[in-house]
Amino acid sequence: MMEKETVAGGKPTRPKKKFDRHRADAIQAYSFLAPAFLVILVFFIAAFVFALYMSFNKVNMYNNQYTFRGLQNYAEIFKDNIALTALKNTSLFSLVVVPCQTVLALIIAYALSSKGIRFKKLFRLIYFLPTLTSSAALTLIFMFIFNVNGPVNGFLTGAGWLTKPINFLQEPQYALKVIMVMNIWSTVPNFMTVYLASLVDLPDSLYEAAEMDGANAWQKLRSITIPYLRPITTYVLLMGIIGTFQMFDQAYIFSNGSGGPDNSTLTVALMVYQYAFGQMNTMGYACALALFLAVVIYVVARLAEKLNGGNGLANN
């Protein structure tokens, strides 16, 4: 807890050398940040400013025509019912996926780091497999196993839980759910690994003390592991929120780019893509939509981080 204070306030550990230490800190910090910052400036900020500029214009990328139209693109978003549907789908997606992936990742990481578990390396290797695969390949695999004649339907009908195979890919009420399952399945190992890497630093003495008090696995998880991992959970939540709100390729491959059936798989990012690269000159609207989405993500991320009990992203 002490180090937290140091970090937040930059409280000097040795008051005598206060000035020197601050200066040296700053010099080291700037030189450590400089290379990363250069890349950010060229490939993120310049690109972002360009996108911002386009969002105030009607843009025709094909013949490089820009017509200034002020805030009109942004005004359109609020009149656009389809954008609303897309935002609804995206939020629902995030609401289901983020808690599931975080909790699952934490539980699996906890299990893997528990003492006296054998075959750890094998388990770890298996769990890690989905992360190694591109999402294009994963989507194809999932579409394959969920198709009407696929193994999932085969299993469910074989076990007598279904009388008739479900058309998971074509029914509006199932399509988004399949993508949810796929997304959870493929992101859990990622976050599990992040948790694991932090768990190896957790001092054994903490668990040992708890064991002395007769704590069981569940109590140890609740009172020691989870609080210890809070900074990492902040990271996992934030990355999860960003990832789910920007979900694109799975919906794209799944619906062949249409967002169907019946708009059930239309996400905001897919809509951005449709407007940016469809057969229309609507790059400006696409940029406005994307920046609007960025604001939504920012707000949601701050809310989630409050719920996680942090006192500001900076200190957490």
Binding site: F248, A269, V272
Partner: peptide, 15 residues
């Protein structure tokens, strides 16, 4: 952090 929240599709062409 804020830069991370911009969907990458719109940065494709600028980049």
């Amino acid at each position: 952090l804020s830069l991370m929240m911009i969907p990458t599709q719109v940065l494709l062409i600028p980049n």
